[in-house]
Amino acid sequence: MSTLSRAAGDSMTMLRRNLLRALRYPGMSLSVIGMPIVMMLLFVYVLGGVLGAGLGVGAGGAGYIDYVAPGIILMAATSGSVAASVSVCVDMTEGIINRFRTMAISRSSVLTGHVVGSVIQTMVSVVLVVLVALLLGFRPSGGPLAWLGAVALLALLAFALTWVSVAMGLVARSAETASNVGLPLLFLPFLGSAFVPTDSMPAGLRWFAEYQPFTPIIETVRGLLMGTPVGADAVLAVAWSVAIALAGYLWARAAFRREPTR
């Protein structure tokens, strides 16, 4: 058996392990799915009237949901990565990683199983949030290719953030720390164009919102789903996602190699 095929087989084994654990302990998965849905209900039914009127899309949340839903969908992609951080940290603190190190398996498969499993769970969360948004009145006008592009970008973002979260889980000293250290990733969309356009913000905040990674990603997802031009935002969105994925992978690999014990 070649090294590559053995690594692929070991990665599939680790993937099954992580998916089975998610099914047996669904609390984290349910909380990850529930947060974006609660945020959508809050911004559509509580704040949607005021924000919708300010954006000129009507006085009710029914008009505002077409603007805010893409941002909430992106939040589902970001919140899913937190579960990976906790899962990796639990493996580290409970010693199972040390056990894996002594076994004749590909070392890369341990982290690959966590990453792929987390991306699958995250995309399931994204699908559920999209269904809830449609039930609440979200009416996207993008075509099938646009939807495919949006899903591909969200999967790329989930992949990128999961590597960052895995690295955070490797360096965290407890599951509680791991669950908190990723919170900035969850709140960065708030400081972008997820809920209001950046040109409505004060000058300093507007500058940050326009140049942070999540804004071009949000605008690209929104443009694809709503059938509007995405322009240079698409290039920036892919570039940011690839850069985050590479940085997260290198950080996770370095942390995994220098952590022989916990």
Rank of each mutant, 00 (worst) to 15 (best):
V124E: 01
L156A: 10
F138E: 10
V126C: 11
V129S: 13
R107S: 13
S125L: 07
L154Y: 00
L131T: 11
L128S: 03
P144W: 13
T162L: 04
V132T: 11
G137T: 15
H114A: 09
V124R: 01
M103Y: 11
W163K: 03
L156W: 02
V151T: 07
L161T: 03
S165T: 07
V129Y: 12
S108G: 10
G143W: 06
G142Y: 06
V129E: 13
L156K: 01
T162F: 02
R101L: 14
L131V: 15
V127P: 01
L128F: 06
V130R: 01
V132W: 09
A158V: 04
V115R: 13
V116M: 08
T122D: 05
T162P: 00
S109W: 10
V130G: 02
I120P: 04
G137C: 12
V124P: 00
L131N: 03
V164G: 01
M123A: 11
S141W: 01
S118F: 09
L111A: 12
A158H: 05
S109I: 12
Q121E: 13
V115D: 05
T112N: 12
L154T: 01
V130N: 01
A158R: 05
V132E: 07
W147C: 08
V127T: 06
G113Y: 14
G113T: 12
A150Q: 03
V124W: 02
S106F: 10
A155C: 06
R107A: 13
A155Y: 02
L135M: 15
S118D: 10
G113N: 12
V110W: 04
G149T: 05
A158D: 08
L157D: 00
A155W: 01
L148P: 01
F159N: 05
S106Q: 08
T102P: 00
M123N: 11
A167K: 00
L145Y: 09
Q121C: 09
T102A: 15
L156Q: 01
V166Y: 05
S109M: 07
A167Y: 11
V115Q: 14
L128M: 11
L134M: 15
P144N: 10
G149D: 06
V129W: 10
P144T: 08
V166F: 07
G149N: 08
L153I: 05
L161N: 05
A160Q: 00
A152K: 03
G113C: 13
F138C: 11
Q121H: 04
V166I: 13
A133G: 15
L153C: 07
T112Q: 09
S125P: 02
T122S: 10
S106M: 07
R107M: 09
V126F: 04
Q121K: 12
L134N: 09
T162K: 04
S118N: 14
W163D: 02
A155Q: 02
M103W: 12
G117P: 07
P140A: 14
L111V: 14
T102G: 11
V130T: 04
S118H: 07
R101S: 13
A152W: 03
G137R: 12
L154K: 00
T102I: 11
S141V: 14
M123K: 09
I120K: 08
L134V: 14
L153Q: 00
A104N: 14
S109P: 06
G142E: 06
V110Y: 06
